[in-house]
């Protein structure tokens, strides 16, 4: 089991000189830091900054380090930070297995066996050849989670990942996601406006002002 740490040092994002969001935190292995706040409080901007997609209209100061290495200016694909969106966003032109394979590092040995194993883990054995469009909402969400994990990130950002699920699925997915993140020892940052998400994550909670 690997363990990683994500440091946000004096992060301060402004637009037109006006402060939008500021944060200073360390997220340890397997830990989930929840950031809550109303719309417009800069949650998504914070995620964009951490993932490496910040629009040039914003100015950002501070430093992001992953396992002690400064990643603030690295391009998104070299940061090692994985992302889970509201929507599962399974690539519609790839099969389920193709989606999982897409995220795997190039020299991963034995890709097919790992894919089968991952599908097994979430109760989707034999789904590899399926067209993602034929999956149910819950199934898609599970494939998206597995795609994230198979890409071997060293930290994870969660952008309201449960908000579009039905109520009965929501609790199930929360458990699944947080269990897997804990097990993988990944530091995670969850952005949400749902208190139940925060409770399920079980970690620290930061509330952003309006």
């Amino acid at each position: 089991m690997t363990s990683h740490r994500l440091d946000l040092e004096n992060v301060d994002i402004r637009i037109d000189g006006q402060p939008l969001v500021a944060l200073d935190a360390t997220i340890g292995p397997g830990e989930v830091l929840t950031v809550m706040g109303p719309s417009g409080s800069g949650k998504s901007t914070l995620l964009s900054f951490l993932a490496g997609f910040l629009d040039s209209a914003f100015e950002a100061r501070g430093r992001v380090a992953l396992d002690g290495r400064d990643i603030t200016v690295l391009p998104a694909e070299e940061r090692g930070i994985g992302l889970l969106f509201q929507d599962p966003l399974l690539f519609p032109h790839l099969s389920v297995a193709g989606n999982l394979r897409f995220g795997m590092p190039r020299h991963t040995p034995d890709k097919s066996r790992r894919i089968a194993q991952a599908l097994d883990d979430v109760g989707l054995e034999g789904f590899g050849d399926r067209d993602p469009a034929t999956l149910s909402g819950g199934q898609k969400a599970r494939v998206a989670l597995m795609r994230l994990l198979l890409s071997e990130p060293r930290a994870v950002l969660l952008d309201e990942p449960f908000s579009k699920l039905d109520t009965h699925l929501r609790q199930e997915m929360r458990e699944l996601v947080f269990d897997h993140l804990h097990q993988a020892g990944l530091p995670s940052l969850l952005v949400t406006h749902d208190r139940d998400d925060a409770a399920a994550a079980g970690g620290r909670l930061i509330e952003l002002a309006d």
Binding site: A51, E77, G80, F85, L89, P105
Partner: peptide
């Protein structure tokens, strides 16, 4: 988000 997703998957 499609492209962002692909980038965070290391592409």
């Amino acid at each position: 988000r499609w492209s962002q997703l692909a980038r965070t998957l290391g592409r």
